[in-house]
Design a binder for these strands. Sequence first.
DNA 1: GTCCATAGTGCGATTATCGCACAATAGGGG
DNA 2: CCCCTATTGTGCGATAATCGCACTATGGAC
Lengths: 259, 259
Amino acid sequence: MSDRTFAATLAKGLDVLACFEGRTGVQTMPEVVERSGFDRATVRRLCLTLEASGYLVREGRGFRLAPRVLALAGGYLADLDAGRRVQPVLRDAAEALDMEVALATRDRMQAIYVDRAAPASARVTLGLSVGSTLPLLHTAVGRMLLARSAPEIVEAALAKPRVRHTENAETDPDALRATIETARAQGYCIARNEFEPGAAGVAVPVGSLGDRPFVLATTATVNRFDDPEALDKVLDALRHAAMVMGRIGHRVEGESGPD
Amino acid sequence: MSDRTFAATLAKGLDVLACFEGRTGVQTMPEVVERSGFDRATVRRLCLTLEASGYLVREGRGFRLAPRVLALAGGYLADLDAGRRVQPVLRDAAEALDMEVALATRDRMQAIYVDRAAPASARVTLGLSVGSTLPLLHTAVGRMLLARSAPEIVEAALAKPRVRHTENAETDPDALRATIETARAQGYCIARNEFEPGAAGVAVPVGSLGDRPFVLATTATVNRFDDPEALDKVLDALRHAAMVMGRIGHRVEGESGPD
DNA sequence: GTCCATAGTGCGATTATCGCACAATAGGGG
DNA sequence: CCCCTATTGTGCGATAATCGCACTATGGAC
C-alpha cells in the first residue's frame, strides 16, 4: 500500500542501522537478517547503501558503524551548544563533587546520556559515554525523567517487560509509580543498588527542549549518599549546575540562523 | 534504473538527515528542500518518516534532530569501549597537562572528535564536543590524520575548495603537502594560528580501526608550545596516553559476541 | 479582508523495491 | 582431496512504493 507520509525503504534502512547499536564488533549480513527480519536481498541492498553513504564500513565479512554517526550526534550537541553551555558546567560540578556528572534525556523507552564529565580521580564504574543508554525504571536518571514525562510514557515504561539488573531492583509497578511521584514532588531522585550493585545515583531536573525533559545526574558508591549532609551537598551542587545551565535549548531569540 | 545494490530512498533520507548537521535551531521543510534539492513532496515524506523513526522531532513548523541520533553515536563509542578505554586516558592526560585532550578520526573530508576531556580549569575556546568537525588541512589533528591516510585522500583534501579560517592559514598545496609529510616523518603535528587566531594544536597518532587512523590532540594558546621543553612535555604526555590507550578497536579475540 | 508562504492531497506514470530461485564462492571436516 | 554447508552474489518478473505535478487548505502579516 502506498503511503504519502511514509518512506518504507528509509525506515527499513534505519532499522538496519539500529541493529548495529548495542552490539560490539562487526555484524555479518546473516546476523542482520536475523535481527531485522528482512529478506536477505533487502538487507544486502540496505547495508550496501549505508556503506556507500558512509554510515557503515565493511570489515572482513561484516559491517561496523562508521564515525559518520558521530557527526549526527555532533549536530545534536551543537544545537544544544553543548561545548559551551553544557561541558563547562558539568566539569565544574564534577570537580566540585569529585564525582561523575552527566546530562541525560529520554530516547524512546530509555534514558540516554547527552554529555558527561568526570574528574580524573573518579573510578570508572560503568564505562558510560555520550549516547549510552540506561533503563528508565531502575535508575535515578530514568525515574527523574519519567517524573517529568507524560503519564502515558510512565505507563508504557511500566508495561514493558522488566529486566531486573540486580537483586534489589524494585519491580512492583505501584512501588515504582510511587518512587516516580516522590521524585516529582521533592524535585530530585535517588536510587541505590537497583541497576548496578554497590552503585547509587542522584538526579535533578534541568529544563527541557520542546517536550523532552533533561536531568543532571551523578553516580557514586552507595554509601556516598547515606549521610544527609553529603546528600545535600550533592543536591546543592547539581541544582547549582542546573541553574547555571539554564533552560537547555533556550537560545537567544534570533540567533538560530547565522552560522 | 533499478539497482540491486543501492536503495535510493534510504540514501535520500540520509541526505535529508544530514541537512540537520551543522545548522542549529529548527529547519523548516522549505529550507530542507532548498538544501537537499529534492522535490517538496519527497522531502515531506522523508522528514515525516525520520520523525516517525525518532530521528527528528517536530517543533513548531520545523524539525530538529532528536536525541535518537545520540544512540547511534553511543553504539560507535561502545564498540570502541570509549567509556572504559578512552575516557580515563583522556582525563588523565588532560589533567596532567591542564589542557583539553581529544581523540579524533576522519569522517569523509573532515576531522571529527570521537571523545574529549578537559580539566575544569581549561577555558572554553572553541566549544567542541563529541562529533564536532574540524578541517583536515588547517589543523594539527587534520594534518596528522592526513599523514596517516592514503595518498588519494590527501590529494582529495588538497583539491577541495579551501576556506581560509584565519590570515595565517597556509593555502599553498605544496607547502601543505610538506607539512603533512613532516608530520608523518616526525610522528607528530603542530599547527598555530591557522584555524583560530591565537590557538595552536598538537596531535600524535594512536593506532587505527580498520583503515581509519586515530589521533590524540590537544589545544592551547599559541605561546604554550613555544618553549621546546614545554612542547616535549606535551608530546610525552600525549604519546604516553596513546600507548596506554593501545591499539584502538583491538578487542580481545573472541569477546565480540557476548553481550 | 487579501496576499503570500507553507502545508497537505489526488493521482497517474514510472521504476525502485521485493523476494524467490539459481549460481558462485569460501571455509572446514573428514 | 572432496564434499558439505554457510555465505555471497545475480536474474528477473510481479508488485506497489515512490515521484512529482497540479490542486487545495491553512495561517500569519498587514
